[in-house]
Write a protein that binds this DNA or RNA. Structure first.
Lengths: 205, 186
DNA sequence: ACGTTACTTTCCAAAGC
DNA sequence: GCTTTAAAAAGTAACGT
């Protein structure tokens, strides 16, 4: 009898320790990413729900914690790409992606695809581009996405191309390399998306 | 107006069977030309047929998996070749072992571009998976037939998980009517 | 700025770790 | 869960030239 009781305490303590570890990891990663406190709270809620629904079995605590943070950033409208998230996590990109898809499905998070416009303010400020460029980039994204150009394309690459195009149009040119570095995509991707976007916008230049 | 059903093409058929006899894969690997066997890496021996093109995974238990064939007829032809090769090595093989198709992979074309964002919302976010940062296709699981469809912006699609060629046809029909009902196939 | 190769996703069986 | 095999879809990436 005593043994069972001690075991319960042991598991309870272990579970408590694991939860504390997960929450401190979320805090550490959130700080490294510079996201507001509200995002950490949303991530914590998602993590606790995953724990309650027993979704952590067969997965690492770190992987679920990182995925919860990725989901929280998206839910709060300030997405970070898997590439950016993986830079502050000890879990590799592929594992974060598959764990995110799993918890998102199981918890019924009903996450909408990321809107590329959500990346515009952050990328533009890192590039020190004006408000005018941001507005222009948003216009390009809005208009070309309506025409169906966005289907299947990565949101970061799409945003990067629109920002590159907008910087040219507003005479605040940034090179493809500069934009690519901030968005963490290749110049090839920017070139491909840029060509499609300017063609759809009817711009020549 | 091409019927999307007429664009269906079988790309791969996976089937399993067995010769009803245990095998010494080490000696089969020695005698069978072109056999790849690395038990440290994988317990099955890999044997490829050229015509029809396929890959057979042969196990110690005598069970065999055939994959890569473009039709169920090709699966039977490929396995007939594998059975004959084993008989040449003085291995007893049952008369005509039962061959069970486990999975058929099909491609098709809806003939129109798709707005995957609108389709994701229309089909219901709880019924689909669409993560363009990770993969350009929208994943749609059907209950009847029980298959998985990958929808792309080009209007092309992949149907997998079916066991009969008709499964893909029924799936394409359902997807087309579902998208038409939603006004998203235009 | 090309071209090639290779990786992402879905499905399934097999035997063993 | 992983390992191996095959195949398509389209996007992205990393090579070499």
């Amino acid at each position: 009898r005593l043994r069972k009781w001690q075991e319960r305490i042991r598991t309870k303590d272990a579970g408590e320790r694991n939860l504390q570890f997960a929450l401190s990891e979320i805090d550490r990663m959130a700080s490294a990413l510079g996201v507001p406190r509200s995002v950490r709270e949303v991530a914590s809620v998602i993590y606790r729900r995953a724990l309650k629904e027993d979704l952590i079995r067969g997965r690492s605590i770190e992987g679920v914690a990182t995925s919860a943070l990725y989901a929280a950033c998206r839910k709060e409208g300030i997405p970070r790409s898997l590439e950016e998230i993986s830079e502050v996590s000890r879990v590799e990109r592929k594992e974060i992606g598959r764990t995110y898809r799993y918890i998102s499905q199981e918890l019924g998070l009903e996450m909408r695809p990321v809107d590329p416009k959500k990346y515009v303010p952050r990328f533009c400020s890192e590039l020190e581009l004006s408000e005018e460029v941001q507005t222009k980039a948003n216009e390009i994204i809005e208009k070309t996405a309506e025409e169906g150009l966005l289907s299947g394309k990565s949101p970061t690459g799409y945003a990067a191309a629109a920002i590159y195009a907008a910087s040219l149009l507003c005479n605040e040119k940034k090179t493809q390399r500069e934009v690519a570095d901030v968005a963490q995509v290749t110049e090839v991707t920017i070139r491909n998306r840029y060509q499609e976007q300017i063609e759809a916008m009817g711009i020549h230049g | 107006m091409t019927d999307p059903k007429d664009t269906i093409n079988i790309e791969n058929v996976v089937a399993s069977t067995g010769i009803g006899q245990e095998l010494d894969l080490q000696s089969v690997a020695m005698d069978l030309e072109g056999a790849d066997y690395d038990p440290e890496q994988f317990p099955g021996l890999v044997y490829r047929t050229q015509n029809p093109k396929s890959a057979a995974l042969i196990f110690r238990s005598g069970k065999i998996v055939c994959t890569g064939a473009k039709s169920t007829d090709d699966v039977h032809e490929s396995l007939r070749i594998v059975f004959d090769k084993l008989r040449e090595l003085q291995i007893q093989v049952n008369e005509d072992p039962e061959i069970v198709v486990q999975n058929i992979v099909t491609s098709a074309d809806l003939g129109r571009n798709l707005n995957l964002n609108a389709i994701a919302i229309g089909l219901g976010l709880e019924n689909i998976e669409y993560e363009p940062e990770q993969f350009p296709g929208l994943v749609y699981r059907l209950d009847e037939p029980e298959v998985v469809a990958l929808l792309f912006g080009s209007g092309k699609l992949v149907i997998t998980g079916g066991k009969k060629p008709e499964d893909a046809e029924h799936a394409v029909d359902k997807i087309v009517s579902r998208l038409e009902d939603l006004g998203l196939l235009e």
